[in-house]
Amino acid sequence: MTNEMNAAQKLKALYPQHKPRIAVVLGSGWGGLTGHVVDPVRVPYAELPGFPEATVQGHGGELWLGRIGQTEVAVMSGRKHAYEDGVVDGMRLPLETLRDIGCEAIVLTNAAGSLRPAMEPCSLMLINDYINATQRSPLVGEMGSERFVDMKDAYDPALRRVAHEVARESGTRLHEGVYLWSFGPQFETPAEIRMFERMGADAVGMSTVPETILARRMGLPVLAFSLITNMAAGLSGESLSHSHTLSQARAAGDTASGLLARIIANL
Rank of each mutant, 00 (worst) to 15 (best):
R67Q: 14
E197K: 15
T172R: 12
Q248A: 12
N3M: 14
A261M: 06
V162A: 09
G200Q: 06
R136T: 13
M231I: 00
G60P: 07
G61V: 11
K80R: 11
M195T: 14
P117M: 09
K152E: 13
A251F: 07
G78W: 00
P16H: 02
I127S: 02
P157E: 05
L139Y: 04
L180M: 15
I68E: 01
Q17H: 08
G29L: 06
P16R: 04
R250N: 13
G32F: 00
S137V: 02
I264L: 06
L246C: 01
L267N: 00
L93A: 15
V149A: 09
K152I: 15
Y45R: 06
V88L: 05
H164G: 10
M199E: 06
T172L: 12
S241A: 12
S236F: 05
F148D: 13
S28W: 01
F51G: 01
P190L: 05
D89C: 12
R92E: 12
L220D: 02
T71D: 04
E192I: 06
A7V: 11
V162H: 05
G27K: 06
L95S: 06
V25S: 07
S28A: 08
L267S: 03
D202K: 08
I106P: 03
P210I: 04
A74L: 03
V87Q: 13
R161H: 15
L235I: 07
D202N: 14
Y45C: 05
V56Y: 04
L235H: 10
A201R: 09
S123L: 07
V149M: 11
A232W: 06
L93T: 15
S236G: 12
D89Q: 12
Q186Y: 09
F225Y: 10
T255F: 07
D129E: 15
M231P: 01
F51Y: 05
A215V: 00
Y179R: 02
G61Q: 10
Q248R: 09
L126A: 04
Q57S: 10
E146R: 14
M151F: 01
I131Q: 10
E72Q: 14
T34E: 10
A154G: 12
